[in-house]
């Protein structure tokens, strides 16, 4: 009998302790992040949209076209087009496509990348109007120098050494036909595309003049969203089908 009363009093006491603990929480500031208005402060290891980084100091593209990411990807969502440069005998990146509709954000490609070129950004707002728009090409994937610097510091990545430059090359020199050199199965890329790809790889002027919203995750805004979708709308019309089919080559010239 007394044991019962004691137990009742004890359990009542603990219920009261619980109630008081919960009631005390009223005095805390809410942890709610009102998402569209304020951006959540995500940790550096957050695995968001994939992107290609440039060297934060020299702004040269870090990709060496080793295709390790392409091989390790479980979803086969990465598609790299590269060829061996006839001048230097080194692999030269022509295009880099990631289908974010297939990607499952496992982060294996970032693990395997020898130059920490491919990274997971903190950007997660990728909704779009079509599946094709989720296939990002080299231009959309490459980060600016500032963004790369941001992610390198946020993820505590070591700053890579600059590539040894054999000889400064004009951008137009890269614009050569590359049939069957690197990817025999792939159709010939048109003239304008390798020019751009090479430019991005070597001197990276393209990275700076593309729209800021393309890969920006540092200061995302509502305008950025609109900009992004507009941009992808414009892009999805021309380059993606041609890359997959190898047809409609005239279209590419304007891309």
């Amino acid at each position: 009998m007394f044991g019962l009363v004691g137990r009742a009093v004890e359990s009542l006491y603990y219920v009261c302790v619980g109630l008081w603990t919960v009631a005390k929480h009223t005095g805390r500031a809410p942890i709610t992040k009102e998402f569209p208005d304020t951006m959540p402060d995500l940790p550096g290891a957050f695995r968001g949209r994939l992107a290609l980084a440039v060297n934060p100091e020299t702004s040269e593209h870090l990709c060496i076209s080793c295709r390790q990411c392409e091989r390790v990807c479980p979803d086969k969502c990465i598609d790299i087009t590269a060829h061996k440069s006839p001048e230097t005998g080194k692999l030269e990146l022509i295009d880099f496509k990631i289908d974010h509709g297939l990607c499952m954000f496992c982060g294996l490609c970032t693990e395997v990348c020898p130059t920490t070129c491919i990274i997971n950004t903190n950007d997660f707002e990728m909704s779009d109007y079509s599946r094709e728009a989720l296939i990002y090409d080299l231009k959309k994937l490459t980060l600016t120098q500032d963004e790369s610097a941001h992610y390198f510091s946020k993820k505590y990545l070591p700053i890579p050494k600059p590539k040894p430059k054999p000889a400064p090359k004009p951008a137009a020199a890269a614009a050569k036909p590359a049939d069957g050199v690197a990817a025999p199965a792939k159709p010939a890329p048109p003239a304008a595309k390798p020019a751009e790809g090479a430019a991005a790889a070597k001197s990276a002027p393209a990275a700076t003049d593309k729209p800021a919203g393309d890969a920006a995750a540092t200061k995302p805004t509502a305008e950025k969203k609109a900009d992004d979708s507009k941009d992808s709308e414009k892009e999805k019309a021309a380059p993606e089908p041609s890359a997959a089919e190898g047809k409609a080559e005239p279209d590419k010239t304007e891309g």
């Binding site: 929480h25 809410p30 709610t32």
Partner: peptide, 8 residues
């Protein structure tokens, strides 16, 4: 409930 669970 939001107050008690530190939400808005």
């Amino acid at each position: 409930l939001a107050l008690f669970t530190v939400r808005k």
